[in-house]
């Protein structure tokens, strides 16, 4: 029989399997994605209870299966229960786990991703409702940066020349602001408000706990969020349904 092993993981999503089982998608503390079967998890008397609900961080005992791991034990580390008692927090947290589900890969470690995810969920639990959008935007730009898509904001992303500070153009393909010469032939260029690169730069440099203190005006944050959403959708291979819903409902 294969040896069981212990792992700390954040539950991202769950899929029904058979009569009463679940397949849970997890983000392990080392940043790898794990998919595991939790047998009987949908029964009211299941020993897993809420421990494998999305947003929960748990210490798990996993046993290697043929294609999926099998959860044999689960112990809650943080349930993030406050996220489930407020509709706005829940929608914001859904964007976080949906993003992690799409970018994390099995056996591909990225330890910073787990730390960023849990810190963001912790922050969303206690933040003022008005700051949720800033937190989601910060998570997305930091998360994209960890995946190798850090936006280039200081100079043209194509030729490193200085860019126009008033007439700002952002190339989704090049991943940053571009000068007028480079913008011409690029079909992925979108015009953005002049303060958007400044806000994105601030979000990248600021700790999650200090985001509220930045005091970004609502209009500037909305413009920034729109660009971040377009940037994420452009580069991720799958549709971010939770992010689409978050934008749609405002």
């Amino acid at each position: 029989m294969a040896a069981t092993y212990r792992v700390r993981a954040l539950a991202l999503r769950k899929t029904k399997l058979g009569e009463s089982d679940l397949i849970v998608t997890l983000l392990a503390a080392d940043g790898c994605q794990i998919r595991a079967v939790a047998k009987g998890a949908r029964k009211t008397k299941s020993r897993f209870g809420a421990r494998l609900e999305p947003f929960s961080v748990a210490d798990l005992m996993l046993s290697p299966g043929r294609s999926l791991e099998i959860v044999t034990e689960a112990e809650t580390v943080t349930s993030h229960d406050a996220l489930r008692s407020d509709y706005d927090r829940l929608r914001a947290a859904s964007v976080i786990v949906d993003f992690l589900d799409k970018v994390s890969v099995e056996c591909q470690a990225e330890e910073r991703l787990f730390a960023l995810a849990t810190a963001t969920l912790d922050a969303i639990e206690i933040a003022a409702i008005g700051d949720l959008r800033s937190l989601v935007a910060t998570f997305l730009v930091k998360g994209m940066a960890m995946q190798g898509y850090r936006p280039q904001l200081a100079a043209c992303a194509c030729c490193a020349a200085a860019t126009d500070r008033e007439d700002v153009r952002f190339s989704l393909a090049a991943g940053g602001v571009v000068c007028p010469a480079c913008a011409g032939a690029d079909l992925s260029v979108v015009p953005v408000a002049a303060d958007v690169p400044v806000v994105i730069d601030a979000l990248l440099r600021t700790k999650l706990a200090d985001i509220a203190a930045l005091g970004v005006p609502e209009a500037a944050m909305n413009d920034t969020f729109r660009l971040v959403k377009t940037f994420v959708s452009y580069h991720l291979p799958a549709r971010m349904k939770a992010l689409d819903a978050y934008m749609r409902e405002g």
Partner: peptide, 16 residues
Amino acid sequence: LPVGGDLEYADEVTLG
């Protein structure tokens, strides 16, 4: 808690 269940196996959220 489900009737007939054991308290010691209840998870923190459910018990809370």
